[in-house]
Write a protein that binds this DNA or RNA. Structure first.
Lengths: 333, 333
DNA sequence: AGGGCTTAGTTATACGTAACACTTCGGTGA
DNA sequence: TCACCGAAGTGTTACGTATAACTAAGCCCT
């Protein structure tokens, strides 16, 4: 069979430089200290340059049994939050000679239970962010080193989490401090640990204060969906003075519902979000929300995975978050 | 040397099933019609299942000389536009047994000129979206099949484009029809073909109408940046009645600047965007903008790349776009 | 009866790299 | 003088897969 590709191989470089293929491998792999003379090394590098040689990664991966590539699985790319996670993860990975492949787990494309079919690259490990349980088990079935972000820490494997519960605590105390007692929680319509935490923590915090009420509505994570859900929830039932949203996009939907209902934010209705997306400062008034440091999150996730790959035990501290108080919350009238 | 990985290989499956490794490869590769009996095939599949066999992709890629993986290079992930592009591309790829690896070309991570160092996977081809010229030449240097999205069609290689010029034409005619004559163009501060087209087309269209004026300001693509640039541009110089923005995020910044300056949108100032992000309907009033079909864009890009990989000549039609007229534009007073 | 065809496999090999084991050679201390 | 050593390489092999080339049996047809 003739050579499939026309790309030069290390053997071509060897022939050009008048050395053996092994020497080329040594020189280009930076393993040549005391094994190859400086002059020969220079000749090899020169030959590689003139031929435009690039090592065949499939061959290298096969030989080494590892790829220095990890997969970052994210639920979607519809907000810049995961862009930040990727950026942080890629920065750390790059420092350690690793590459990051991004797999946005889609609805409707292929079997979502099998990221590996889609991201054909051979992988050394996986970081899965905010994934549902069934996706995680599919990944674990593959026995790849795995770090989970924003997921139930009681699950097997390493996890790295934002301190979401503390963020919700800050929101609750902020609103309680402004005199609010009657709350609507607009939650995400997605079965995910990270959203369960929000609901649980908010409930817990409000229960500590006598005379508070809490209703709950659920919505798909989109502005339009949140608008409908919020409109329904705000018209039905007793009056609320504050809406706590699981996500900034949901809060943007609440703004629109409020406008439709003739409620003014914040004088009639205080609203809070979570994430601190660009959206949060685009809308008027600017949104009081919990800022999550997505890049730091990605960095920590990658550090944890690299630790696992080195056989270490990753240390699991939660990443602090903090409330950005802006114009969407005010003292209850 | 002992086996590096403990994962079962096709040889392990062969031993378990009592056949040769070749038979395993034939059966699992669905190439066994008339070469292996149904009974043996069933035995092989059973053995693979019990051992949890998954083929080593590095070995397969090396053997076949191709990876069925393509790289999608996007400039950033800070809007959901590229999520749509990815989704469309991945959908088409999946139908053809290809995987898509996403490379968000970052500022500050590694050498941005070399996506291949970061996405370590071996690749069959590249789709590059809205990339600057120098990045493109770096990719071409690698002699991988390449399709460029939203890029200068006069460059070598295949391109797939949105009909941005027609979108700008629709914006111009819409605003001219509402009586506007004095325009501000808020352009993106990024050297990219796609933004040059906007500027050129707007200028061309307005020049056709006597008595029009056009000023230009530039801003980084962010709400905060656009706010500052728009505020400066709106206070300096003569009065404008319409602001045409290269991007919805810029338009959101214009809203904020207008609010600061006491100008009301749309009664004092009409504003248009481009992309139709979620942001466009989150802000008040909802933004008149050009809707770009990101998913279709991604699909067409992938189709073009697959055509190139099959040795065909991809056909290059522009993808139509259309203006969504909403509340941010009105008749000039 | 035997050549040819079909079925059901097996054997052998190559993909390109990294690294172990080996060789060659000039110097060097005892 | 000679065994030994380090420097500077080379020869060879293995990673796991897919497939071309081969084999061996069974059957049909003339």
């Amino acid at each position: 069979m003739p050579r499939a590709s026309t790309r030069p191989t290390s053997r071509d470089v060897a022939r050009e430089a008048g050395v053996s293929q092994a020497a080329v491998s040594l020189v280009l792999g930076e393993k040549w200290r005391g094994r190859v003379s400086e002059a020969t090394a220079a000749r090899v590098r020169e030959a590689a340059r003139t031929l435009g040689y690039r090592p065949n990664l499939a061959a290298r991966n096969l030989r080494l049994g590892r790829t220095r590539t990890v997969l970052l699985v994210v639920p979607a790319l519809t907000t810049e939050f995961f862009a930040g996670v990727y950026t942080g993860a890629a920065r750390v990975a790059s420092r350690h000679g690793f590459g990051v492949v991004l797999y946005p787990s889609p609805e409707g494309i292929g079997p979502a239970r099998d990221p590996f079919a889609s991201a054909q690259a051979a992988l050394d490990g996986v970081i899965a962010s905010s994934m549902a349980a069934e996706a995680l088990t599919a990944i674990r079935g593959d026995q790849l080193p795995l770090v989970m972000l924003d997921s139930d820490p009681s699950a097997p494997g390493a996890t790295v989490n934002l301190d979401i519960a503390d963020g919700v605590r800050q929101v609750a105390e902020h609103l309680l401090g402004l005199g609010h007692r009657h709350f609507l929680h607009l939650g995400a319509d997605v079965p995910s640990w990270t959203f369960e935490v929000r609901a649980r923590e908010l409930e817990t915090r409000l229960r500590l204060v006598p005379g508070t009420s809490l209703r709950t509505a659920r919505s798909p994570i989109s502005i339009k969906g949140a608008e409908a859900a919020a409109e329904a929830a705000l018209t039905a039932g007793e009056r609320v003075t504050a809406v706590v949203c699981d996500d900034d996009q949901l809060a943007a939907g609440v703004y629109k519902a409020a406008r439709r209902l003739g409620l003014r934010v914040p004088s009639d209705l205080s609203v809070t979000g979570m994430d601190d997306l660009a959206l949060a400062t685009a809308i008027d008034p600017e949104l009081t929300t919990v800022r999550l440091d997505a890049e730091l999150f990605g960095e920590r996730g990658m550090q944890a995975l690299l630790a696992v790959l080195d056989g270490e035990e990753p240390s699991g501290t939660d990443i602090p978050v903090h409330l950005e108080v802006r114009g969407s919350t005010t003292r209850v009238p």
